[in-house]
Amino acid sequence: MSTVDLHTLTGAYALHALSDDERGEFERHAADCEACTQEALELSETAARLGLAVSAASPAALKSKVMRRITTVRQDSPRVVPLTRPPGSGSRSRRLSRWALAACVAGVAAFGGTTVWQYDRAQDANEQARQSEQRTDAIASVLAASDARTKSAELADGARGTVVVSKSRDEAVFIAAGMAAPPSGKVYQLWFNDAGTMRSAGLMDSHRTAEAVLLEGAVDEASGMGITVEPAGGSAEPTSDPIALMTFPA
């Protein structure tokens, strides 16, 4: 893909409409292109606000209605085709039936194991989706708050960060673009700056160069935030000098 083409992908990137390969290629390009980084960041913020303008909550009774219908709607019965047996095939059919029965039992056992595995995977996926939806809703609520205040700054290696603070919600969101991957076995950790004392505010995704993160915990009297490089899993307190410090908007 040419550089000209990559310049046109900021909108699709902001809406998460790129394939994994395209996203990776765009993020590598954006790391060296300040214009694309800034445009993608602004489009992401705008998309979040516009999404809230047309969003509508599902009726409270919708889930119970769907679950109730599941128990009352009958599945279609399988179509049965009668089989005709040629003369003299009785003993052979009985032998084949025993083999078929054994195969069916083995198949059912295997299918049962597969079903349990698929169910567990589905449950995990549903839980991940639920958590992701909750995080997205929380981030969108901060961005759309009537008292939301925004401040942006250049970070290390050409990255850019924007922090959005809502005093009414006592929450803050950090939006990063063009972040370099942390060293192997390390992770970026966010911190509230409480008059010089750093209070953990959560971890960033090590596999993403652009991300919106709801800072964990209340803003309280924090005057800003910082980012450090910590061992995987994070630390109780910073173990390295901040790679970035940002003051909160007034």
Results as ranks from 00 to 15, higher is better:
A195T: 10
A172I: 04
L190C: 11
M225T: 14
A181W: 07
G196Q: 03
R199W: 07
P183Y: 02
G224D: 05
F174K: 05
A177H: 12
M198V: 08
D194L: 10
K167C: 10
A210P: 06
N193K: 09
S184Y: 09
L190G: 02
A176W: 10
G226I: 09
I227S: 01
M179C: 10
S184N: 13
D220S: 15
L190S: 07
A195N: 14
G202T: 08
A176F: 07
A218V: 11
A222K: 01
G224T: 03
A172V: 00
P182T: 00
R208Y: 07
A176K: 04
G217S: 03
D170I: 07
A181V: 12
R199C: 04
G202C: 09
P183C: 05
V187R: 06
S206K: 13
S206P: 14
T209A: 14
P183V: 02
E211R: 08
M204L: 15
G178W: 00
P183L: 02
A212S: 12
A201V: 03
I227F: 05
G178H: 01
P183I: 02
D194A: 10
L214E: 01
M204P: 07
L214D: 06
T209S: 15
L214M: 10
A210Q: 12
S206N: 13
A180K: 14
R208I: 03
D220P: 08
V219C: 01
G217W: 04
M225S: 13
A177Y: 12
E216I: 11
G217L: 02
L190K: 04
S223D: 14
D194H: 12
G196K: 00
F174W: 13
V213G: 01
H207P: 06
F192N: 02
N193S: 12
D170Y: 08
G178A: 09
K186Y: 07
G226N: 10
E171V: 08
L215Q: 03
A180C: 10
A218E: 13
A176R: 02
A201C: 03
A218N: 13
A222N: 05
G178L: 06
S184K: 13
E216C: 11
H207I: 11
P182V: 00
L214A: 08
I175A: 13
D220E: 14
A177K: 09
D194N: 11
M225F: 15
G217H: 05
